[in-house]
Structures are given as structure tokens and as C-alpha cells.
Amino acid sequence: MTTGWPKYLLITLALAFLGANIALPLAAVFVEAFAKGWDAYVEGIIEPDALAAVRLTLLVAAIAVPFNIVFGLAASWAITKFDFRGKAVLITMIDLPFSVSPVVSGLIYVLLFGLQGWFGESLRDAGVQIIFAVPGIVLATVFVTFPFVARELIPLMQEQGRDEEEAARSLGAGGWTVFRRVTLPNIKWGLLYGVLLCNARAMGEFGAVSVVSGHIRGLTNTMPLHVEILYNEYNFVAAFAVASLLAGLALVTLLVKSLLEWRFADTIAGSGH
């Protein structure tokens, strides 16, 4: 029980910390982006290399996110609907990418597919380029976002148990029908929650993608990489303009995430990430 001024002091302290640590950086992005007015802002965004970066970012997310949805559904189905040994180990391994430095996440693919990598020569002979090309960027993005959907669904489906699926089976429903008519409606909001976070990370990943991309303007630059290049060229307005798009994406993600948490708190596992 805390009443009176100590409570307000603590609230003030917490808000001051959040203001300096969270709100100010967020505000800085937009203020810097509009530092030279609307025209300069728009120019930074509609410039061809910037648009190419947007397109590449969307393409990468459009591949990585669906892959991780399929993986997340398969993994959580296998883990929560069946009993087998080594389950805990499997869950830990799925979480592994979270504890690997983004730079190392990129490096591992360079070691495999880079020119001096294990498969480097055979790939070159076959005329396939993975590192410093789009496939490498997709691979690195899939790696860093690998656990997002699965780790949202596993606790949720664990809690929901198997009774409903088993009841549907006993009533004669086929496997696919059980999944589509019974499981999916129960987990749809949790799934959306996981997809949301997965997508935010996929579009925003920097370290891993930076290692495998090669930074070729207009070709292998994603939006975060494009921000870095512009920033290092002291083109601050353009850098912050592109950054503001990513910040906007982050805000939309937070908004939808909060709405899901308020509206469907009971059908989202809500485990912190």
C-alpha cells in the first residue's frame, strides 16, 4: 500500500526515465526527418534507391514471415499435441537464435555459402549466389526471426490442451479439418500476435543482414541498411526519413499488439520476449 506523495514521486521517476529513454529517441527520429521540411522528407523517400530498399524489405519479409508461420505451427503442433522424449531440449534449440548475436547469425551463412565457405566453390561453379545477394538476406532474416511464432504458440497451445482436438477426432473429423475448424480458431489471435512481432523483426533486422548483404545500392540494401549508408554519407534528412518509415512500422506494431493484448488477453500467451 502506497499512498500520497511517495506514490507520485515513484510515478514521476518512472515516467521521467521512460521519457528520456524511450520517448525522446522516438521523437528525435521524426524531428530530424522533418528538419528541412516536407519536401526534403519526401525526396528522401521517393529516391529510387530508397524505393528499391523498401521493395527488398517487403520481399524479404514476405518470404521469411510465411516460412516462420509454417514452421511455428508445425513445431507447436508436434510439441503440444504429442508426448515424446527430449521436448525440453527441442524447445531450447528453437529459442537458440534469440541468444546469438545478430552479427554471428549472419556470419554462419558466410561460413557456409561465402566464397571461402564450405559450399562456396560448388555454388560459384553452379552460378548460384547466396551471400551478397537476396537468398542470403532471406536466410539470415529467417534465422533471427525463427523462434517468434513458435514461442508464442507453444505456451498457448499447451494451456489449451488436447481435449477439443480429441473430441473432434472422436466425432469423425479428419486431421486437416481438426486443425482448421478447432485448433486454428482457438489460436488465431495468438498466431497474429506472433506474426506481428516476427514481421517487425524481419523488416527491421540490421546486424545479420548487414553481414550477408554486401551493401549494393538498389540491389541488396534493405531499409535499415539504406539508413546506415545515408547516415554515413551525412545525408541525415534522408536517413531519418527512411528511418521514420521504420519507426512508423514499429508504432503500428505496438498499437496492434496492445489492441490484441487488451481485447484478447486470454487467448494470447503473452509471454515476454
Binding site: 522516438l26 545478430p102 512481432l197 527491421g204 533486422e205 531519418f240 519507426a247 512500422l249 506494431t253
Partner: peptide
């Protein structure tokens, strides 16, 4: 909701924003 901003904001954006500050 804003407490989660660091999860959602791309790290490069955070980096240049903090540098500007």
C-alpha cells in the same frame, strides 16, 4: 505499450536516433 518500443524499433533506427540526441 511504449515500454515495448525497443522490441519493435529496428536497432539501426534506435542507433541513429540516440546518436542525434
Amino acid at each position: 505499450a511504449l515500454v515495448d518500443l525497443p522490441f519493435a524499433l529496428p536497432t539501426a533506427v534506435a542507433g541513429i536516433a540516440l546518436t542525434a540526441l
